[in-house]
């Protein structure tokens, strides 16, 4: 029979195990935030200073922007249409059906246009970036690029960040137009609104800042979505499984950060 042994004098009491676990998690999270911030800083520095790879930028503008148009456009149309129906039904409870065009326009331009476009990009673009860079990491293409005297931050990361920041506001502008059009379609075809009055009410109600604040949000979201895709792909480890994990983390972290940034920016813009 083994005699019970005393705990080593330096070992913490067993009751502190949850605290230790919590502490380790917090430290890990802080470390991750720091790593992402440093990565983003390097990416911004590479994007802001020459040499620029314009060919790569054009390719990313097409991949991130042009090819995202269908998914962003369809999402906006259906969301605008559903929003119109919901607001009409809800507004009917206190005889406010007639302000539906204004609320749809406000909801789309200030909130849903940029957020939905960003979420679509998180799913489509952030995942694709993470998978592509992760595969390049796994097959030593990023190492090879370094040995060919080419900075991967300038060649791979900077064009994607720039494209994200430039393109998402444009996609959001399209989403704003199509979202309002979706609402107009339902209002005029299903709910009996006059088409001209609907448009007049929308245009006269909307202020430039309603659209502008949404576009500023979109630029920030574009940065978040592309930086999370690049960060997780660039740092992918462990072959195919690592690439899969990087893709999942990129989409999840980009989506959560878009919502968090949305709240912060909305708070900032609340009184304007």
């Amino acid at each position: 029979m083994t005699a019970p042994t005393a705990a080593p004098s330096g070992a913490p009491p067993a009751g502190l195990a949850p605290a230790r676990l919590l502490g380790r998690s917090v430290l890990g999270a802080v470390g991750k935030v720091g790593a992402v911030a440093m990565f983003a800083g390097r990416g911004v520095a590479a994007a802001a200073t020459p040499p620029w790879f314009l060919g790569r930028l054009l390719r990313q503008l097409a991949a991130i922007g042009y090819f995202s148009l269908p998914v962003v456009g369809l999402t906006a149309v259906f969301t605008g249409a559903a929003l119109a129906l919901n607001i009409f039904t809800g507004g009917g409870r206190f005889n406010a059906e007639q302000v539906m065009p204004q609320i749809v326009a406000l909801g789309i331009t200030r909130e849903l246009g940029p957020v939905l476009a960003a979420l679509m990009l998180a799913g489509r673009v952030s995942a694709a970036i993470a998978a592509e860079l992760g595969a390049m990491r796994a097959t030593e293409q990023i190492d090879a690029m370094q040995t060919l005297s080419t900075d991967p931050f300038r060649y791979l990361v900077a064009p994607r960040l720039l494209a994200g920041v430039l393109v998402l506001p444009l996609l959001t502008a399209v989403a704003d137009l199509l979202g309002v059009a979706g609402g107009w379609l339902v209002a005029t075809r299903v709910l009996g609104f006059n088409p001209t009055v609907y448009v007049r009410n929308t245009v006269s109600f909307l202020q430039a800042w309603d659209v502008g604040s949404g576009l500023i949000k979109a630029a920030v979201f574009g940065f978040i979505v592309t930086v999370m895709g690049c960060y997780h792909g660039y740092n992918a480890k462990g072959g195919a499984r690592g690439v899969g994990r990087a893709t999942t983390h990129a989409v999840v972290s980009a989506s959560v950060l878009v919502f968090a940034a949305d709240y912060l920016l909305t708070s900032l813009f609340a009184h304007t």
């Binding site: 030593e140 293409q141 090879a144 370094q146 040995t147 900075d151």
Partner: peptide, 23 residues
Amino acid sequence: SASARRKLFSRFGVLFQGAALFD
């Protein structure tokens, strides 16, 4: 530094295990 390393790489040539060609 990264820039000094890039200059140094101009003196090297590397054949990677899987060739590591850019797709």
